[in-house]
Amino acid sequence: MDLLSRIKTRAPEYDSKYYDFILKFTIEQGSTMGRTTETEKYELGRYFSTRYEMYMYAVLLGLRKDYQIPIERGTDKKKFIEIGSWKPEEITNYIIMAVLAKGEYDLFAMEELNEAELEKKLTHIKSDIEAYANGGFDIIYSKAQEDENYFIENENSFLDLLDN
């Protein structure tokens, strides 16, 4: 299995304190609400069709701001689906590329690792993704705390957050 495929078998996790917060902005995947129409979703004030979309958004926000908050050991976490199921694939690949670029990864040296060492490296990559996502969620959460109406009154709120 190539490197990309192996990275994509990982399922990142997030701090469960963000669970309800994330749900506010997404339709639960697989639930009855997942079958609502775009209009109903829009009217419900939901911005993301799935939780992994919001996760991807959070990772990119963290990457953009270079803001990582590693999830502390012992934190209660929730899992997303594996990276390989994230859509669209080009954005997913871009995220992986960005994490590899930003992290202390010597791509050439990585090829010399043995299986166990590579597995460790892949876990490290996953942790990096989680830390960026955590940072991104922190930014979003802080915005909501600062202005409780920001996401309610402004339908372009997540777009505008990319500008800040």
């Binding site: 991807m56 990119l60 953009r64 871009y94 590329m97 960005a98 670029a101």
Partner: peptide, 12 residues
Amino acid sequence: VLKGVSGLFKGF
């Protein structure tokens, strides 16, 4: 969602 992230590619 990739708005403003082009610096990341350069690094890679």
